[in-house]
Write a protein that binds this DNA or RNA. Structure first.
Lengths: 103, 103
DNA sequence: TAAATATATATCAATATGCTTATATAATCA
DNA sequence: TGATTATATAAGCATATTGATATATATTTA
């Protein structure tokens, strides 16, 4: 089974508080980098670096809208990631507090 | 939510091929260290070190039987770990090939 | 076109991780 | 009791990871 390597690699990405929270946020809706920076209270380069890893693994994708780049989950083909995210408390309320000048 | 830290920490442990395979093996049945060493083809200290991490996180526990120490899963209270392991192909056949002098 | 905003990338230091080798401990057996 | 087997621990090295700082790129706006 070669598949277990891919699963382990993806779980390693989930095994970081910052990235796991990012994915939990994106479960609610697509967010731009500045949203994520605000919500997680981390530096912008730090956010970009984590997002790049998630993108390389195919867990998220990006869509540019003007000067903003929105990230979304792409985990339809990764049921174990869906399952994990399903067990994380919702960030709906947190996201609702966004100042969200981005739109 | 403080819980997400614990989830991330546990997923980090799952995010290693050796440990993830160990857990998948233990899903089938309790195994002693020498079984795991044989099945994974790793060194004994390496196996012990990974098992210690899993034990520290409460993902496995140990039971001595004579000179052997058997490890078993203790993930009843961690549904997201159960979910992940549920998506990993079974190692039943592999385990059946054990020479298993241990008993 | 210049300034401002949003994001990415490069580099680096600190820390963490995984594995090996050597050794210690514990149980069994002759 | 001494040898053997099973397992744990310690120490060290090589590599990976994280986050910070500095800088580059891309888009929009004045």
């Amino acid at each position: 089974m070669e598949q277990i390597n891919e699963i382990a690699d993806n779980l390693k990405l989930l095994g970081d508080k910052t990235r796991l929270t990012m994915l939990a946020l994106l479960k609610e809706r697509a967010l731009c980098v500045c949203d994520i920076v605000e919500l997680l209270d981390i530096s912008q380069p730090n956010a970009s670096q984590h997002l790049r890893k998630l993108k390389s693994a195919g867990l998220v994708n990006e869509t540019r809208k003007g000067q903003w780049i929105y990230y979304s989950l792409t985990i339809e083909d990764k049921p174990y990631v869906q399952a994990v995210l399903g067990y994380i408390p919702s960030y709906k309320q947190k996201i609702a507090q966004l100042k969200n000048d981005c739109d």
